[in-house]
Simulated assay, not measured.
Amino acid sequence: MIIAGGGPIMSKTEGYQRIVVAVAIEVAAHPALRRAVNVAERTNGSVTMVHALKPSPLSPDTARAAVVERTRSELEALQAGQPRIRGLRLVDDRPWTALVDIADETDADLVVIGSFVHGQLRALLGTNSDRVLHQARRDILVVRSDAYNDAHPPRDYTHIVAATDLTDHGRAAVERAAGLADAFRARLTLLNVMAHFPEDRENETTITPENLDPQQFQQDLRTEALARLAVGLRHPDLARQVAITTESVAHGVADHAREVRADLIVIGSRGSYGLNRLLGDTADEIMHRVPCDLLIVRG
């Protein structure tokens, strides 16, 4: 059901104040860390770095201590000269799931992970990830690690696409996208993807009149709803797009991101905010398909 209203939406111009980022030492160029610092600079926030050592229960205590000290030195070198990085947490007794605990301890409003760490989390937690990370009630920015290197590090976002299903719970994501677009002075596009147009699934509030084409009627409804969102954001001329795909919503979002060369996609989360819910189902499929960073905003 399309229920996006036309009331004012106050952009979150305060930005992200407390950012926690997972730093994988072995990933060249450290794109997740660079992106976290970049966001902090634009939103006047601070960054806490987190690194989880690989477990090695058979290592002698002295050898393990040397690994801890060497890793801490590497992290401190990354921190040097970065005034936005104001915390460093080296985890030796827990895996990457400690990221959620530290986000809670620091009252973070954003968790940044690279796609490398995301892969480790999925492999590590499997179907138990929701149970373990059920309290991860934070926005999550997944940085497309393979899209950056030393020659092309993360820079200011220039084109942000807010993908919305036009329901009330998705308004938080649109609001956040608008705030970030202001902070980065980036273009913002509101996107709705209509997949597998279901003539037999029209609800009673949007039944197509007999003399109109059902797909065109539904597309017009969504276009009008996007226009109301733009007015609510106080940007009535904001770019808006209803994309039609014969595949999944994830395909539609990814295809549009490539077409317009977006460097950040913003989507909302539903229901429980465990990390596997945020990065599972449609969100997970989008993350694996989009050629850019993905911000998942809690509702």
Rank of each mutant, 00 (worst) to 15 (best):
V174L: 04
A177I: 06
V37Y: 05
R34M: 03
R89M: 11
P83C: 06
K12N: 08
R258T: 05
T246N: 11
G7C: 02
H152K: 12
M1V: 09
A29Q: 03
A162M: 11
V260I: 06
R234K: 09
R222P: 09
Y273P: 06
A257G: 03
D168L: 12
L125A: 02
I140P: 01
R89A: 15
Q82S: 14
K54T: 11
Q215A: 12
T106V: 15
E199V: 09
A283Y: 06
A181Q: 01
G126T: 10
L190G: 04
D255I: 01
H118P: 00
L141F: 12
V297H: 05
D200M: 09
V266Y: 05
G81E: 08
I244T: 06
L166D: 01
V266L: 01
I2V: 10
I25N: 06
E199P: 08
E204Q: 13
D220Q: 14
G179W: 05
L133H: 07
R138G: 11
G271R: 01
T158L: 13
R185W: 05
R240W: 07
F116M: 12
W96T: 11
N38D: 07
E210S: 12
G299C: 13
Q216V: 07
Y273K: 04
H134C: 04
N211K: 09
V161M: 05
L295F: 08
L125W: 09
D130Q: 15
L133T: 15
R70V: 08
V91E: 14
E175W: 11
L190K: 01
G87P: 07
V290G: 11
I244D: 04
R258C: 08
N149C: 12
S145G: 12
G179S: 04
A65I: 03
E14G: 08
A183G: 08
R86F: 10
I267F: 04
M1T: 05
I296V: 15
L226Y: 03
T71D: 15
G179E: 00
A181H: 02
E175R: 13
V68P: 14
R84M: 09
E69Y: 11
G87M: 07
D168N: 12
I102M: 09
P291L: 03
D130L: 10
D168S: 14
R89D: 14
P55R: 07
S59P: 11
N149I: 10
L78N: 06
G170P: 10
A24F: 03
V112Y: 05
A29R: 00
A173E: 02
H118R: 15
D200A: 06
S11K: 12
Y148K: 00
